[in-house]
Write a protein that binds this DNA or RNA. Structure first.
Lengths: 176, 176
DNA sequence: GTCTATACGTTGATAGAC
DNA sequence: GTCTATCAACGTATAGAC
């Protein structure tokens, strides 16, 4: 007896995302995901060809948005670093849960050939913040700014005061 | 025929640490660790009662040092924030590989009942950097500083210029 | 689109010999 | 300390009915 579902794939992603975040990707079995939804393991395989594909389905929207943001700013050169920090921060805040999953389970991401892309992001971001020929010191400052913001995105306290102060701190770290 | 080993437990830890870091805790099997050492899986169990205990053995030295640093600074109140940032940074730099393992595989850490302790660290560090009654804005600044330094510790470029700039950036993020 | 049933490899872990 | 042999549990995945 099939259940009434508006969008089964979306529901699977939602449940899986929550379990993956709480217990980790590897420690969550497909049987567990299926039981939560009241379907069987085999039904999952109808919607997603593998566990990795399920993970990819969860993460892809965030990946696409970041890729879009980067391409956008690279096209318009002479971008404002302060504005970029704000935009980047807002993207990962909007995808807070998914972003937490990615950060908390980097090992799982590596299996999706996504790690390479993420490392490339870092270099592109550095280039935008401190230029293409940055010194180690400038790289360090950019790393503190971006890494600091990412850590802030993982905390719950998303009040405006918190967001603005985080951006101020990140910009201050750049030392401009 | 037993191999000549100075310290078998230490060698197991070293090999496991490298594999865990590269492939993730869950994706690394004990068989794989054993094969690298030229022994069998069963031999591993003589030295470590479980896979989780092996992980704990790898991580424990860093955990102990951070715990020690925090206790030390809490005893001497009125500690210098700048000095604390430097000391904390130096500890995680010294344990760079292990620290990377912990950060890259937070999901595995949760199984060791270590996540709780790490979250407690965060609060204790915030208290030292911005006081016990900090505003959300001050928490945000402390988060950028610490999160930024941790990200810096994960990169390879450990030249002095990089280290000093990272500390400057973290201190600037505090906004004092 | 979802189910039952099933297959197969791998894993963490144990027992007991040497 | 290390081995061989073995285990149950779990993972992914497929075939075929409805």
């Amino acid at each position: 007896m099939p259940r009434t579902r508006v969008d089964t794939r979306a529901e699977i992603r939602a449940v899986a995302a929550e379990l993956f975040t709480r217990q980790g990707f590897e420690k969550t079995s497909l049987r567990e995901v299926a039981e939560r939804l009241g379907i069987t393991k085999a039904a999952l395989y109808y919607h997603f060809p593998s566990k990795a594909d399920l993970m990819r389905g969860i993460v892809q929207p965030l990946v696409d948005e970041i890729e879009e943001l980067l391409a956008d700013r690279e096209a318009a050169d002479g971008a404002d670093p302060r504005q970029f920090l704000a935009d980047y921060f807002d993207v990962i805040l909007r995808y807070r849960q998914v972003f937490e999953l990615m950060i908390r389970d980097v090992a799982a991401l590596a299996q999706l050939d996504l790690l390479h892309q993420m490392l490339a992001w870092r270099d592109r971001i550095y280039r935008m913040l401190v230029g293409p020929d940055a010194s180690p010191a400038q790289i360090a400052r950019a790393t503190v700014a971006i890494g600091g913001l990412q850590d802030c995105a993982l905390t719950e306290a998303a009040v405006d005061e918190f967001r603005d102060a985080a951006l101020d701190a990140a910009y201050a770290a750049l030392g401009r």
